[in-house]
Amino acid sequence: MSTTTIRRNRMGKKKKAKIASPLRVLATMAIAGAIVVSGIFLAATQHFSFWDLSIKNSRLRQQIDALQAEKRRLLVAREVSLSPAEIKKAAEKASLLGTPGEPAISQSFPKPNAAAIASVQRKESTTPVSSAAAVMKTTLVRPALQPNAPVQIAKRTNGEAERRRIVSNAE
């Protein structure tokens, strides 16, 4: 019997000790809960940001692949456009080169008569030539068949500038 009493007394003491700090327990629980919740929240944030970054990373990798493929394609396109055969084709198209067996364009036109030449010379001498607006005379586009018809001069396309443009675009 005595043993039981002692036990009860002990239990009572313990209960007293526990009851003495309910706030402490609550605070501990709240802190623990907060830690767990914030941990879960952080983990979730990290998980979703990982997810998001992975998707972005994958997209970027795809873009790199696509850009590298595009770079190769442009390099090939540049080399094709700079290949002698293509340049020859382009020159023939632009009538800078006569195809073999075919007379040059300027040769096929009838010679302008003396009056036409004189009128052109008169016009040229009266119009002042500005150095800024100098046009390279290359091809006679339209022959001066009529005595008073003005001679039109075709503007030469600058091949080098065009090539540079293509190259810079490609690079």
């Binding site: 692949d65 493929a69 190769r72 394609r73 390099l75 090939v76 080399e79």
Partner: peptide
């Protein structure tokens, strides 16, 4: 992609594209 064949001036003579 198959390897590229260049000339001595680094111009591609054979190249594979995607």
């Amino acid at each position: 992609l198959r390897g590229t064949i260049f000339d001595r001036d680094e111009r591609p003579l054979a190249m594979s594209i995607k």
